[in-house]
Design a protein around this nucleic acid. Structure first.
Length: 594
RNA sequence: GGGCAAUUAGCUCAGCUGGAUAGAGCGUUGGCCUCCGGAGCCAGAGGUCGGGGGUUCGAAUCCCCCAUUGCCCA
């Protein structure tokens, strides 16, 4: 379909050029790829539309006149045998638009053939082939469990990584564990005081929640006794000086936290190719800053703190090292970036981080550029909006946070109930696992249907809804079709000899599905280019919607014509491939039964 | 004080590089299971695309001003 569109652009270009020559106008910078195409509002008008307004200035003529002229030029080319309109489709004029009606039968045959032969490869492109792209996402702290914000981050990171892979890039998924700093010491201090040697095992609590409990405890403690703050700070100093006991405690608690967080990752199905730890890169960051200081890129204040002046770049001055020589987030990020480029020279590094850090990344990228790293130009902050609750912002200090594990459990429970209410339970092999997959599908779809850049409201009731525009709707469509195909195979003898014939798929509803299937590769490209999984989410929903409508109106198996059955089954199985591929990219588990 | 972003139906969101009548879901009103999975399908009501200017043959989309909200920097 993309190829056809490009061919038509060239044809229209030729036609317009011919008209221009006749009237003695220059075509100037006109080029086939610059010609604007659209999709007509009504399927009956065709599949590709060329608005002629774009040429009216060039040809000094009214768009509807140009449309007619264009058409006759194309017909001329066709009668000369230079164009095969039977293969390319039929141009028609509607007011100021030149619309192309594709040859349905030929597009149907080609599309179905392409999808069935490419299978799980269908939709992949090479627009990023040869590119090495590193993508950082998730980035948890080791003092508390993952929350809703991380889930959005993970969903975006995971799916964007998949989109890049589908576009031919070599992708390295990396995580950065924020495992050092005053906040980490807070939970350590609280544990040392209140923990009494308990462990996640002894308490029967997941490690990250266990550690998080002490972080909360610290905040309670410090509200009663301001001394706590000093104790934590003392601990940080000890940590930086390599005090053995402190390091041992730090290691122990980090292990608990990371172990717990990893279990959450297992549930949500995400993984990384490499994990970075701030505790291992912050020193490199310091070195870089000191190098910059020597090189005169940065400067020192009287109190000994190191600064960078970005006023020329339209930003502010910014601290890089505190007066006591300790590092900041920015310092650590400098070190991490440098380390990454050493480890794996990339063509692009994408940071999936919330929009509240927009300024931070602007500064980071500028500082790295100032330090002379040419690759700094290839850094990109994929900024996503905050996740708010209907009653307002999430506030971790006030306990107004949606915990990732809790949310997941809740979703799973509801999915389990839903399964139980369907009287289909007996057919499902593992109801527990299925419930988990439905929960994950609901969650990922909910988080990904919104454009990343926008803030979103997370309504618990809506996210657990399994009807309407949701992940489970996609899964449900997939399950129904799977079940139908199974039936088809079971009754194979009845349909034996049935042949797929493109011309039998002549219903409008079928054509709508086919043109959507044909445009899937373009959708994946678009989503990848914009780092925007929501484009794909919307597409999949519309695809399923179109099929559900069709499926409701037209029998697939219940037909006397076995060729018609075979053809409609073919359509269903091709759609299933697209659905599977697309859902895979978004992290929505595909289910044969649910 | 400065910067960035957002504002589309009661609620949550789509609307791609400006194009033909602004779309979904939830909710609401009303239909559809002797038939391949009703987690479904269909229809109705619901809009001054925050406000005002501008560019353009054409603006929800681009530009400017204002308002509101969120985030960040100091």
């Amino acid at each position: 379909m993309k190829k056809l569109k490009e061919r038509w652009r060239e044809i229209v270009y030729r036609a317009v050029t011919a008209i221009a020559e006749k009237s003695g106008f220059e075509t100037g910078e006109l080029a086939p790829e610059k010609i604007i195409t659209e999709v007509p509002p009504d399927m009956r008008m065709g599949e590709i539309a060329f608005p002629m307004f774009q040429f009216s200035r060039l040809l000094k003529s009214a768009p509807n006149v140009i449309a007619e002229e264009c058409l006759s030029e194309i017909e001329k080319l066709s009668s000369k045998g230079e164009l095969d309109l039977n293969e390319l489709g039929l141009p028609t004029v509607k007011g100021p638009y030149l619309n192309i009606k594709l040859n349905r039968e030929s597009v149907t045959a080609k599309t179905i053939d392409a999808v069935s032969s490419e299978g799980s490869e269908y939709g992949k492109s090479d627009i990023l082939s040869g590119k090495r792209i590193m993508i950082e996402f998730s980035c948890p702290n080791t003092n508390k469990p993952l929350h809703l914000g991380h889930l959005r981050n993970d969903a975006i990171g995971f799916s964007v990584a998949n989109l890049l892979v589908a576009s031919g890039a070599t992708v390295k998924r990396v995580n950065l564990i924020n495992d050092r700093g005053i906040h980490i010491c807070k939970s350590m201090a609280a544990y040392e005081r209140f923990g009494k040697g308990s462990t996640p095992e002894s308490e029967g609590i997941k490690g990250d929640h266990f550690v998080g409990k002490y972080y909360v405890m610290f905040n309670e403690w410090v509200s009663k006794d301001p001394e706590a703050e000093a104790i934590a700070r003392e601990m940080l100093k000890k940590w930086e000086n390599g005090d053995e006991k402190t390091i041992a405690l730090w290691k122990k608690m980090n292990r608990w936290a990371i172990e717990g967080i990893s279990r959450t990752y297992e549930k949500t199905g995400i993984g990384f190719d490499k994990i970075y730890y701030e505790s291992e890169t912050y020193k490199l960051g310091k070195d870089e800053v000191l190098k910059g200081l020597e090189g005169g890129i940065f400067y020192k204040e009287e109190d000994g703190s190191v600064w960078v002046d970005l006023t020329e770049e339209g930003l502010d001055r910014k601290v890089l090292l505190r007066s006591d020589g300790t590092s900041l987030y920015l310092t650590q990020d400098i070190g991490t970036a440098v380390q990454r480029y050493r480890d794996w020279p990339f063509d692009r590094l994408i940071y999936v981080v919330a929009s509240e850090q927009n300024y931070h990344f602007k500064v980071l990228f500028l500082v790295l550029k100032k330090l002379g790293h040419q690759w700094a130009e290839n850094l990109f902050h994929l900024s996503y909006g905050m996740v708010n609750l209907p009653e307002g912002k999430m506030k971790s200090r006030e306990g107004k946070v949606v915990d990732a594990d809790d949310l997941f459990e809740e979703l799973k429970l509801l999915a389990r109930e839903e399964i139980g209410s369907k009287e289909r339970e007996g057919e499902i092999e593992d109801a527990e696992k299925t419930a988990e997959k439905i929960a994950l599908g609901a969650l990922n779809y909910y988080l990904l249907q919104v454009s990343p850049q926008k803030d979103m409201v997370f309504s618990p009731e809506e996210s657990i809804s399994f009807t309407g525009n949701t992940g489970p709707y996609l899964q449900y469509t997939g399950a129904r079709i799977s079940s139908m195909i199974t039936k088809y195979r079971e009754r194979e003898s009845r349909y034996r000899g049935g042949q797929f014939k493109a011309e039998l798929l002549g219903e409008e509803a079928e054509w709508e599905i086919i043109r959507r299937i044909a445009s899937y590769p373009e959708i994946v490209e678009q989503a990848a280019e914009n780092y925007n999984p929501s484009i794909l989410a919307v597409y999949l929903y519309e695809l399923c919607k179109a099929y559900s409508r069709y499926y409701h109106d037209f029998p697939v198996l219940h037909n006397d014509d076995i060729n018609l059955v075979a053809s409609r089954i073919k359509l269903a199985s091709v759609l299933l491939i697209v659905l599977r591929n697309g859902m895979g990219i978004l992290g929505i588990p595909f289910l044969e039964k649910m």
